[in-house]
Nucleic acid binder design. Structure first.
Length: 500
RNA sequence: GGCUUCCUAGCUCAAUGGUAGAGCAGUUGACUCUUAAUCAAUUGGUUCGGGGUUCGAGUCCCCGGGGAGCCA
């Protein structure tokens, strides 16, 4: 049958191709076969009634991940979306010929469907005793090592499917991401938020300060940029009378790649009319606690439900259940510099102060940029427990309302968890004249970057509103205890490999 | 973009500048309740690519490719 010349016996690809060729020569082509699956693996196991062996029939399918042949009986495991299930093949059940096919033509990695009945083994594992099986896809390439899995980072990212097959942690983490996104949708829909979709191709990259990707539309003869933020189009929805809207979508920023940055990343933005930044505080806290309690469901050492998740980078346990700290930006700066009069200091004094903290700044920077260097380099990374930083300097964001009793700050918060910015939120600026002034000041020489169409929309009247953005990737880093954004993105951006 | 570091069999990893090895996987055989099954035998290498130093390079040096970490 499988007459494999010894000179290819070392080449697993060649051996598998030979097995496929033999099968086809024998009249069976796995790539033309299929199976009518009745259950996923765990659902099938749940059907088993204790003491009632061989009474429940199931048809399950999946990838062969364990292969243990011992003469006339064999145990194998297949893996599907729900996990693994053990199968028991016996010569006296299947007959000499089919059992021979099972032993000779199947390999680890093949995808098979089997029909049989459930029983429990001596060691207590619910197993399918196979009465018939079909190969429905031949794996021509071998799986990575069964015990250590795949650990080469490059292969994990470039061939994520292999990582998902052999690394249970990755499978679990990336499935958890799906569940988190789904739960965010349901949470918002339950509160009457409408999900909308706004343009990715935009004429002006608004809503944030970042370098966009450029592209071109041939038929329109127009240059476009890929969006860097969802903000300005969602606010137009508020003008249009959609009072509670959100979008979960991809943003693109043409900047560095790091453990916390991927050029394309997923943002959630939420806008709620007649709310403000304080309303967003309640919303995000409720959302995050819901995600921890009902989706991530962490347990402590004793196996009891907890609201704490271990922060991979610091090893500290982040407690989502405890009261979240709220602190003003300026107080954090005064605390970090040990200078109660920091904001009254001259620029030269500020530069000296920043350098005393071991940071270097460009003397051409504005005062607020110098101060903000302390925030982003010293303060932010140290805020591991959930912290609302409020009343940021107005220069940091042109889209928020000025604080009524302090014209130098804005009514916003920045939620920091695990040393990362997770969610900024504002009381949204809805005064078209103030907004125009802020935009023009920010654009400076580049007035063409002002989104005039958005300002026109504001002139039609936007209700007062609270708005918030949440970086979904970073949220997933936190909630899954991942170390890098690449661990929560299925296909993180890598260099394309050049052919020799 | 800069600095540091890594790239060895399908996978996970070894190898003072001196004959490239192991485990898993593969191949052949034994084995009808295994759990990283076990037992016996056995195949498998352009050491990322190119150049250099050396009697001799996986190892040292240079150029290039890719990954990771830190920085910008």
């Amino acid at each position: 049958m499988s007459d494999i010349p010894t000179d290819i016996s070392h080449d697993q690809h060649a051996v598998r191709r030979q097995k496929l060729a033999d099968m086809r020569a024998g009249g069976f082509d796995p790539f033309r076969a299929n199976v009518n699956v009745t259950h996923f693996s765990q659902d099938a196991k749940a059907l088993y009634v204790d003491g009632q062996d061989y009474t429940t029939a199931v048809t399950v399918a999946g990838r062969l991940v364990t292969f243990r042949v011992q003469g006339g009986s064999s145990f194998v495991k297949i893996q599907d979306q729900q996990g693994q299930i053990q199968l028991y093949f016996r010569r006296d059940v299947l007959g000499e010929e089919r059992y021979g096919v099972f032993k000779k033509s199947l390999d680890l990695g093949d995808i098979i469907g089997v029909s049989g009945s459930l029983f429990k083994t001596k060691t207590g594992e619910i197993t399918v005793r196979v009465e018939s099986f079909t190969l429905v896809s031949k794996a021509l390439r071998p799986l990575p090592e069964k015990w250590h899995g795949l650990s080469d980072a490059e292969q994990v990212y470039r061939q994520r499917y292999l990582d998902l097959i052999v690394n249970a942690e990755s499978r679990h983490r990336l499935m958890l991401r799906s569940k988190i996104v789904s739960a965010v949708r349901r949470f918002l829909e339950d509160r009457e938020f409408l999900e909308v979709e706004t343009p990715v191709l935009q004429g002006v990259a608004g809503g944030a300060a970042a370098r966009p990707f450029q592209t071109h539309h041939n038929a329109l003869g127009t240059d476009f940029v890929l969006r860097i933020s969802l903000e300005l189009y969602l606010k137009r929805m508020l003008v249009g009378g959609f009072d509670r809207v959100f979008e979960i979508g991809r943003n693109f920023r043409n900047e560095g790649v790091s453990r916390r940055h991927n050029p394309e990343f997923t943002m959630l933005e939420v806008y709620q009319a007649y709310s403000d930044y304080r309303g967003m505080m309640t919303l995000v806290q409720d959302l995050m606690r819901h995600l921890v309690r009902d989706v991530v469901k962490p347990v402590d050492e004793a196996g009891q439900p907890t609201m704490k998740i271990k922060h991979a980078a610091s090893g500290e346990a982040i407690d989502f259940g405890a009261e979240w700290r709220e602190v003003k930006y300026k107080d954090l700066i005064r605390e970090a510099t040990g200078d109660p009069q920091w904001f009254e200091r001259s620029k030269a004094e500020k530069i000296a102060g920043v350098e005393k903290l071991g940071l270097s700044v460009n003397p051409a920077w504005e005062d607020f940029e110098i101060t903000n260097e302390i925030f982003s380099k010293k303060i932010e990374p140290s805020l591991i427990q959930p912290t609302f930083v409020t009343h940021l300097p107005k220069e940091l964001c042109p889209l928020a309302k000025i604080t009524p009793d302090d014209p130098t700050t804005i009514d916003v918060f920045e939620l920091i968890i695990g040393g990362m910015e997770i969610a900024p939120a504002y009381s949204e600026q809805n005064d078209p004249d103030v907004q125009r002034e802020m935009f023009e000041k920010q654009a400076g020489e580049e007035q063409q970057k002002v989104d005039q169409d958005f300002l026109l929309a504001l002139e039609h009247g936007m209700p007062p509103a609270g708005g918030m953005g949440i970086g979904i990737d970073r949220l997933c880093i936190l909630l899954t205890g991942a170390e890098s954004i690449r661990d929560v993105i299925l296909y993180p951006q890598l260099r394309t490999k050049k052919e020799e």
